[in-house]
Design a binder for these strands. Sequence first.
DNA 1: CTAATTTGTAAACGGCCATGACGAAATAGT
DNA 2: ACTATTTCGTCATGGCCGTTTACAAATTAG
Lengths: 406, 406
Amino acid sequence: MDTGMTAPPHEARPAGVGRALPDTQQGMRRRNLSRVLHTVGAEGPLSRAAVASRIGLTRAAVSTLVDELIRWELLEELGPERPGRVGRPGSALAVSGRGPAGIGAEIGVDHLAVCAVDLRGAVRARAVRRSANRGRAPEPVIAELTSLVRQVVAEAEQEELWPAGLAVAVPGLVACDGRTVVRAPNLEWRDTDLGDLLPPDWPLTVDNEANFGALAELWLGAGTPREFLHVSAEIGIGAAVVVDGQLLRGTRGFAGELGHVPVRPDGPSCACGGRGCLEQYAGQEAVLRAAGLRPREDLVGLLAERAEKGEEGVRAALRDAGTALGIALTGAVNLLDPETVVLGGALAGLSPWLLPSLEAELTGRTAGPACPVAVSPLGPEGPLLGAAHSVVRAVLDDPAAVANRT
Amino acid sequence: MDTGMTAPPHEARPAGVGRALPDTQQGMRRRNLSRVLHTVGAEGPLSRAAVASRIGLTRAAVSTLVDELIRWELLEELGPERPGRVGRPGSALAVSGRGPAGIGAEIGVDHLAVCAVDLRGAVRARAVRRSANRGRAPEPVIAELTSLVRQVVAEAEQEELWPAGLAVAVPGLVACDGRTVVRAPNLEWRDTDLGDLLPPDWPLTVDNEANFGALAELWLGAGTPREFLHVSAEIGIGAAVVVDGQLLRGTRGFAGELGHVPVRPDGPSCACGGRGCLEQYAGQEAVLRAAGLRPREDLVGLLAERAEKGEEGVRAALRDAGTALGIALTGAVNLLDPETVVLGGALAGLSPWLLPSLEAELTGRTAGPACPVAVSPLGPEGPLLGAAHSVVRAVLDDPAAVANRT
DNA sequence: CTAATTTGTAAACGGCCATGACGAAATAGT
DNA sequence: ACTATTTCGTCATGGCCGTTTACAAATTAG
């Protein structure tokens, strides 16, 4: 039906600064500190006056806020700007390269990875280790991860950074408490509370790797809008829905199950109980079967390699997967009207063979201008970066909290 | 008080009070006024102390806020509460039944309707007139509507209410400016700016009737959650997506086009360019054709009547429509994980014959507990009430704005 | 070299919520 | 019946915070 296009009554949500703080003077102060920090972080070196005009406060107010942020080492003064206009040149402010850092970690089926990201968003330390984790018990995996984290933290501390929190991306479903892995099929973990296994040295967040990947796309992607659909395939096929700069998680945290959207209602039955789900056509197993290949560790690499070589069977399998994806995405796009669809994770690497049929389906089934499909530039790095950045965002969202923690 | 990290996955957003006001003391004051008003409105008669504990301010602060709201006639003192507990009983506060009112209007194909709703949410005046508007020029329709509005406003003014704004629900696509009807197929209007045709006496908002219907469901529905899918069928089939208490409009305002979600990818072609869209199976035309009936004005009534009489052809047609709806909704539910699906508009009246097959499809295709499907209790009143309430919400969201307008 | 413009800071100001104390009005216990 | 206790609403005080106003510093325009 025709949805209206009104915006009027209910206004957009400002980036960053959450509404959790109470509406008291202290809360106001904390929100304004956050707004200053966010603004400087997002728009490069800026003078106090420029910040003031951007966030709608006076120069005097911004001055005191900046003083405080400098005292906390979250902001630093770069010195006078090169004057291009009349008037006294401002003093450029930039987010500090020292101080709090976000530690991101990733538990993959065949590897562990950890990195440290500073407030500017730069990766300052990292460590990766191959590690066959399929079916391995949580304890040794986490122990190995912990040593990797300690290594990265030590490296970061040498550059005057201190860890403000640890965020772990896992290939599975995570409970709303942000600590417990409910189910990770490829690791064969169930109801594992990572908070119990990791050292309690840092505030911990655990989330699904697809979610972190989508957030990375939101925060780091080139010109990625505040409203998009991030499709990835690691285990199954997941779509993260980003609306108004926020990840949509759903009532029970199950949002984004694109893999079980019906593509052909009378198709083959699926483990979920339905029939003809997308996963039956574009899931890893289905594509391998259609391509006539046998499962292996690096599936994506295998497929890409064979497709590259011109194997028609593989190409056809990917083409068909793209078609199925296109059908499912048509439904999603009609429902959500996102600004773009972004292919991430394994799909990014296979996009040369998926995209043509996918886009054909999507444009063919849409009346107006079709929703553009982009390929994530982050690729497999997304989840790790998203995790680390989620910690950084938390600092930017409430700098006073971390200042009181030092 | 360290909020620490972002309260991980699920971070509730406080109802109402938007973040548009600047973070200055005046803005803070205005937000707190709004929070007090919202709280009293939502949780019935409340003492100052009860409000204070709910919104996290001190009694003293709430006292001054309440004084101001009473001076503006937005709140009124009911007198001492009946004491059930120890201690001095509080003085009950309630939202005023006088003062600003929201005027809602609806332009239908065969009728015009207007109502006035007070801050308490009660309908205080209303007027309906049958009127064959299909293909009629905008000017006379709006003139007729205006006289109806004046009548309702006069009625409301006799009860010491004054109109705080006018919201108009139309069966068509509305531009983002909230004034212009881009396209209303059943009225045969195109690019009609209602702001030019209506008297400029009141702040105006125009929106699609389905959107207002969904908002009515959100604000008035019995126990309707902050996250649901509202499906309605007037012209085409539309789904309003409500996430976190907000209507999702999409980048271009086209969100919710459930009617063009592919149900059978190789099905009959559709005007949208696609094939096998839901509308081909559950749209009004399709159902009529399947039932072997000819178009008429009151389609829903006709279908319901025949189905009631036990005509197997009609029942089968509705059953099949339910199945198609179920398939499309399975996709939507998998993607969004809403708390419930609500059938509104024409679908509410036909639900007895749609629901069984719809729910069978939905539960059969979902692994865990299926998403419950409810029928809107508002029925055809939704859009009108939603329109009027949208004005009321605007007042509750920023009471200072209307106070400065009197 | 002067006038104009812009930046950053300091002091005075005003608004707003918190704190603490107090009287008022109810209940609970003796 | 009388006192202690609890809770409510209000008032005066104080502290915090952004604004206003003024001013010195630094640069460009003429």
